[in-house]
Design a binder for these strands. Structure first.
Lengths: 184, 184
DNA sequence: ACTGGTTCTAGTACTTACTTATAAAACTAG
DNA sequence: CTAGTTTTATAAGTAAGTACTAGAACCAGT
């Protein structure tokens, strides 16, 4: 009986901490109706760190996450660039980028990769997107690696005409024509 | 002299904590070459909470942020929706959405708002973007509030033709035509 | 040169949320 | 009923503080 009790309690402990990670041992003890020492023993056995460590961990994780998002001036990884001519970028479709239900990538991620590549490839200090013509050819799934190739096909005044073609391993999945406008 | 010293030091303190928020008072004292008590006095004056509070705050913020991001199947806030007909969404341009240098919004955020609204408005269980025709009319700056209106103009088989027009307070800033394709 | 006010440093007592260790109590099972 | 497991209790120690008091340094003006 006691053996089951213990397993059950530890299970509950794990769940409680997962659902609300800011509980102290004292609060947990009250919730599970055991002594603080039991909680501490359980934490030790289960390898769950103390409240402060948990909190710190979460804060640190958050920091690195925020950084990697705000770093994203360019969506995707730029692997080749000839300013004013062409460029290539790679992006992996991660689980955050897809619709939960269908596991198909949201269109704007693919667009974002192409758009920021188009922006990177033109030789101008500051520019905005003016016009875009876009075609999605096939649905894109989680785990796929997209390679986008951009080419500057024409330049007239402050307008740059850029074509971007995106492939997965198998075929072309997306293509776009951008007109980028450089600012003064 | 001493008065300037103090102001300067407190300035430095604020910056140090901002850039690496996991410093203890002791470490800060060493870095700024004053006693721990001075650091504590400064923190008190500046209303900066202790390390543990800061850590906790960050962890809590992160929790709610993760939630609100994962909620974001729709970019922008959906404020009106008539399935199969029309929809309206609002999005505020925050500092994370603009280029640091020019303070102009990155095109893909505006696209994302329009694209996810187009997706929301069509009456289909699952769909992807097929084609998009996009025009950015003016640069968009930080702080602006964008109102996007979508309208389903035609439906043929599993293809939906959706027009989206986005305005700020003053004028139309963006317009797009989407062909959305519903999946079986 | 002395005095007064600001700024900085030092020291003590107390707090929270623990850890480590040791021991006793309670339960439970053969 | 006794041995083993599980739980609780007690004590001492830790990190990173708060709150408070008091003294030292400095510097500025008269």
């Amino acid at each position: 009986m006691a053996r089951i009790q213990k397993k059950q309690r530890q299970q509950q402990l794990v769940e409680k901490i997962k659902s609300s990670p800011f509980l102290t041992d004292e609060e947990l003890a009250r919730l599970l109706d055991v002594s603080i020492q039991t909680i501490r023993l359980d934490r030790l056995e289960l390898g769950i760190p103390e409240l402060r460590e948990r909190t710190k961990q979460m804060a640190e994780d958050a920091q690195t996450k925020v950084k990697s998002i705000s770093k994203g001036e360019v969506v995707g990884e730029l692997i080749d660039l000839e300013l004013g001519k062409s460029g290539i970028s790679i992006m992996n479709i991660t689980p955050e980028m897809v619709f939960e239900r269908t596991q198909v990538a949201r269109g704007h991620y693919v667009f974002s990769q192409a758009n920021s590549l188009a922006l990177a490839v033109i030789d101008a200090p500051a520019a905005v997107t003016g016009v875009a013509n876009i075609k999605y050819k096939t649905p894109i799934r989680v785990g796929e690696k997209l390679v986008a190739k951009a080419e500057v096909v024409k330049q007239r005044g402050n307008k740059y005409f850029v074509w971007v073609k995106t492939r997965n391993d198998v075929q072309e999945v997306f293509r776009a024509k951008f007109i980028m406008v450089s600012l003064d």
